[in-house]
């Protein structure tokens, strides 16, 4: 008992410190959502007026909805494509520098180059632009990040167990779902979280590929456009709500899960 406690203690201290660092500015951000003044960098008294302003601000709420839609689609598509790409690259017998470079490229192409390139490309094709073109664009870099995380896990994966499973008569699908997938799952989850997080925060590529209308404005676009006249704490209020709701939803679902498992 004592042994497990002392072996867990350093881990807990590490987690406490790291999460403290991660949540320190978040605490400030939440605090600022109750800041009476509209200035982002100085405090002038407690108020909930920004929450009221947020509820009345249909532009911000719609932008938040759009961001969520884009991030979900980009995450699903890029997680599937990125995982397959990682499997393809790691099961190849011969390393291909071209393929490696292609998988690295989305991470190193400057955002503005990709943004200008995609808008030029979509306009020349005469494609109508909107949320779908943002999704197409976000999948490009998301898939590279997913692929990279999944490949890291596959590096020491013993592919002979895959062959063993097939020698025992299992089909390709069964082998994948029963053998490969469970091993990959943590990295797929990690990759998907990464893709979602990147997509939620991406501004310049979304701005260029969104088309001209109001219907495809995402939250970062909305927030950056407020820069000239000051970003009001409405945005902090929104971030507070988004994080609060996500955390609550996760904890509730976990709790329900545990209730089911412990009859």
């Amino acid at each position: 008992m004592n042994a497990t406690f002392s072996s867990k203690l350093p881990g807990r201290i590490v987690l406490l410190l790291v999460f403290g660092f991660l949540y320190l500015p978040i605490a400030v951000l939440v605090l600022l959502s109750f800041n009476d003044s509209g200035l982002p960098t100085s405090w002038s008294g407690f108020s909930v007026r920004w929450y009221g302003a947020l509820l009345a601000n249909t532009d911000i709420l719609r932008a938040a909805g759009n961001t969520f839609i884009v991030a979900i689609f980009a995450t699903v598509i890029s997680t599937v494509l990125g995982t397959l790409l990682a499997l393809g690259m790691e099961t190849r017998r011969r390393k291909s520098n071209g393929l490696e470079a292609l998988a690295f490229a989305p991470m190193v192409i400057p955002d503005i180059v990709l943004a200008v390139a995609l808008l030029t490309f979509f306009s020349r094709l005469g494609l109508a632009m909107g949320l779908h073109t943002i999704v197409i664009s976000h999948v490009i870099f998301d898939l590279a990040f997913v692929c990279s995380v999944v490949r890291a896990r596959l590096k020491h994966f013993d592919f002979s167990i895959v062959e063993a499973s097939r020698d025992l008569g299992a089909s390709g699908w069964t082998t994948f779902w029963r053998v490969t997938f469970p091993v990959l799952l943590p990295s797929i989850v990690a990759g998907a979280l990464l893709a979602f997080t990147l997509s939620v925060d991406e501004f310049i590529i979304a701005f260029f590929t969104a088309g001209a209308g109001r219907s495809s404005i995402t939250l970062p676009m909305q927030i950056y456009s407020m820069i000239r006249f000051g970003i009001t704490p409405e945005v902090n209020a929104l971030a507070t709500i988004v994080m609060g709701v996500s955390a609550t939803a996760l904890l509730i679902s976990q709790w329900l899960n545990r209730q089911q498992q412990v009859p």
Partner: peptide, 21 residues
């Protein structure tokens, strides 16, 4: 279907300006 909805603007004019201007 969900993504394609709302690509075309129904308005007569699309105007781009700084926010709050």
């Amino acid at each position: 279907a969900c993504l394609a909805a709302g690509t075309a603007s129904a308005a007569d004019l699309v105007i781009s300006n700084w926010a709050g201007y």
